[in-house]
Design a binder for these strands. Structure first.
Lengths: 168, 168
DNA sequence: TAGCGCATGTAATATGTTACATGATTTC
DNA sequence: GAAATCATGTAACATATTACATGCGCTA
């Protein structure tokens, strides 16, 4: 999976491993993120498969390893992209915990859910900031996914609040 | 994670590994699921830690390995449950793909999104069936998570439709 | 008697995170 | 001169999936 996503980011232009991590943080992190510990080994793997090409440069007196996508890389990326969207059920650990809340007191449950709402609101704030900054810079698809994140988190909060009011 | 979730299911009563899988399918699979290949080894691990107790029985001339939660198991489960809900960003692979749709034609993108909507609708149908069957049988928390799934999928469809209409 | 559901389990494989390790450059 | 950011990478560890392997009991 990560292989394709990295290729996707390289479709927008050559990048270092560090750049990829930054781009993820500022764009897909609300629905997909990866660590350096997976990005660098994946880039090495992609290079061995000849899907990316390495270009060592000295930029601003700082040496960088720039990766760019090869023709073969573009081909397999586009083939993947045109395959049906796999409908994978979203792994939401927060729901799992709430699922079992009948085993704790109502008051404790409400407190925990309220704390959670605070965290979700924080995430909305971060995403809104990203949305503001990227205004006009992104294509419809990319800006829609950010918008989706905000909408989704809002619906999570709404659901939490309804749950609390039903509990009372 | 799975360790706690299995303990949670055992809080409702003793179960076999197979039972746990079935229960997940009929309750949490829209936001959390596990395979036999992870359930059985986890049960063994929990037994070694003395968090569950094994009870080999012969039920309907069929031998079963029933697991029940121990006092120690209840304690660590409840301790986990009362800790703050970790706000983990949801991993949604479908969004990743759509994020890169600027690299395919608008027509192709619309077709793929429409196919996806069909799959999501199918999932809503399955969840609605589960909701119908469990009506009145579940506590507020558990029924809320099912309701959440339906609401969430509906919002995914709404978002997809808006995206399509914006594309046109 | 074939196939399905019940029931348990292992091995190979995939996939990724966290922590560690290093070192340069830039900003305060 | 300290701290933050840029930049790359490895090793230990965690976690889970898929495929395989096995076998019983029920039903069409």
């Amino acid at each position: 999976m990560l292989e394709y996503i990295i290729l996707g980011f390289l479709m927008f232009g050559e990048k270092t491993g560090y750049d990829i991590k930054q781009t993820m943080k500022k764009s897909t992190s609300n629905f997909f993120d990866a660590s350096f510990g997976s990005i660098y080994p994946t880039l090495t793997k992609l290079e061995k498969k000849n899907y990316v090409v390495i270009n060592e440069v000295l930029e601003d007196s700082r040496k960088k390893t720039l990766y760019s996508i090869s023709e073969a890389g573009k081909n397999i990326f586009l083939a993947w992209l045109q395959q049906p969207i796999e409908f994978s059920k979203t792994h939401s650990i927060y729901l799992v915990k709430i699922y079992f809340y009948s085993f704790i007191s109502k008051e404790k449950a409400i407190d925990l859910i309220k704390d959670f709402i605070r965290d979700v609101n924080k995430a909305i704030g971060e995403l809104t900031e990203i949305e503001e900054k990227s205004k006009g810079k992104l294509d419809l698809y990319r800006s829609s996914t950010i918008y989706f994140g905000i909408e989704h988190y809002n619906s999570v909060i709404k659901w939490c609040e309804e749950l609390i009011s039903n509990l009372k």
